[in-house]
Structures are given as structure tokens and as C-alpha cells.
């Protein structure tokens, strides 16, 4: 059995693909009303399928895995976890079992087979689905707080630590621990005796 990360799609989704919006598909049903019962039933099943996977209807659904060479396969495996399944709560394309994710996996394989590089593929996907599809947020003014914020904070924090240490050294200090502990004990004794 060959390694195939692109799980073959489920049998019920094999069928003609409709590019038309759903309501149009539904409008066809009266037109076919006079036809044989079997065809009507088949159409009903098809319609239900489309209703269940509305998004899937927009893309090619017959998947035979696109062969990739070893290098491309490794690239594919590395790239997939960085892409988000658009219909799941929070799953990457690598993990998701959703039909739309299978379709996107298929698309990504196709792009890799065409020899596109990471930047090209990501651009292709973000042009269609927005930054939402990338788990690694792009570096842009709106994400500066994300990429630079922690390190700026680290710089400020380190500065404060060194300043604090210098200040505390310049302030004179006696053997603090003993003084504090005795004070604490005395306080306990004092305040318990009303």
C-alpha cells in the first residue's frame, strides 16, 4: 500500500460536480418531476449530498491522488500543518477529516506537482481564503504586536531587571533576612494580643 496522505474521498461524494449555487440545483427538481422515480430518487440523494457538503460542491471532487516525487512529498508534509481547515473549529489541513479539507489537500498537491514554491502556494490560498487559512500570521503592521511585542517586552524587562539590581546595590542594606523575620514574628505576637 503506497503512502497516501491524501485520503481518498468518501464514495458518496463521487459524482458530477456542480458549479451552480445551491438554490439553482433545488430549482431543477420540478423540471425533472416527470421523469422516472429512480432518477428522481437519485437526484434527491444528490441534492441532499450537496446540502450536506455545500462547500464541496464548488470544487473538483473526484480525487485520485496526484503523484509527487519524494522531495515534493516531504514539502507537502511540512506545508500541510501550516494551513488551516476553513470549516473546522481549529484543525490544520493535515488533521482535518472534513471533506473541504480533503479538497484543499488535493488542490495543494496539484500546486506542488506544478512545481510552485511555498510563497506561491500561500499566495494562491490567501488570495482565495484570506490570512485565515495560514496558521503562521503574515508579518504586517496589524501583526507587529504579535511578532515584535514579546521581544520588545523582553528588552524592556531586561532593562528593568538590571536597573533594579543596580538600585538595590546602591541602597545600603544590612543583613535583611534576620531583621524581616524578627519583625514578622513580633507582629504576629503583637497583633494576636488585643
Amino acid at each position: 500500500m503506497p503512502s497516501d496522505t491524501n485520503t481518498p474521498s468518501s464514495p458518496r461524494r463521487r459524482g458530477p460536480s456542480f458549479a451552480s449555487p445551491l438554490h439553482e440545483v433545488q430549482n431543477w427538481i420540478p423540471a425533472f418531476a416527470g421523469m422516472t422515480k429512480r432518477l428522481g430518487a437519485a437526484l434527491l440523494v444528490l441534492t441532499l449530498t450537496l446540502l450536506a457538503f455545500p462547500a464541496a460542491a464548488e470544487v473538483e471532487t473526484v480525487h485520485s491522488p496526484i503523484p509527487l516525487n519524494e522531495q515534493q512529498e516531504a514539502f507537502y508534509k511540512d506545508l500541510l500543518p501550516e494551513l488551516r481547515c476553513l470549516v473546522c473549529q481549529n484543525e490544520s489541513l493535515a488533521e482535518s477529516q472534513a471533506p473541504l479539507a480533503a479538497d484543499l489537500r488535493y488542490e495543494v498537491r496539484g500546486l506542488i506537482a506544478k512545481g510552485q514554491n511555498e510563497a506561491q502556494i500561500k499566495k494562491y490560498l490567501t488570495d482565495r481564503y484570506g490570512d485565515f487559512v495560514l496558521y503562521k500570521p503574515p508579518l504586517a503592521p496589524r501583526t507587529w504586536v504579535l511578532w515584535f511585542g514579546p521581544f520588545i517586552l523582553l528588552g524592556v524587562g531586561l532593562g528593568m531587571v538590571f536597573a533594579y539590581a543596580r538600585r538595590s546595590r546602591s541602597a545600603s542594606s544590612t543583613s535583611a533576612k534576620v531583621v524581616v523575620d524578627q519583625a514578622a514574628l513580633k507582629k504576629i505576637l503583637d497583633e494576636k494580643a488585643p
Binding site: S92, D131, Y135, P137, R142, L146
Partner: peptide
């Protein structure tokens, strides 16, 4: 920042963003 920024950007209607493992 990684948890709140996508929420903030979404609430403000600026963009939808994902912050995941690669970040």
C-alpha cells in the same frame, strides 16, 4: 497576544487571522 489578537481583529472587522503552531 496570540490568543487575543485574532479576536480583536475580528471584532474590529479588520481581518480574520489564524495564530497557530508555526507562530
Amino acid at each position: 497576544a496570540g490568543t487575543l489578537l485574532p479576536l480583536v481583529l475580528d471584532v474590529l472587522g479588520i481581518t480574520k487571522l489564524s495564530v497557530g503552531p508555526p507562530y
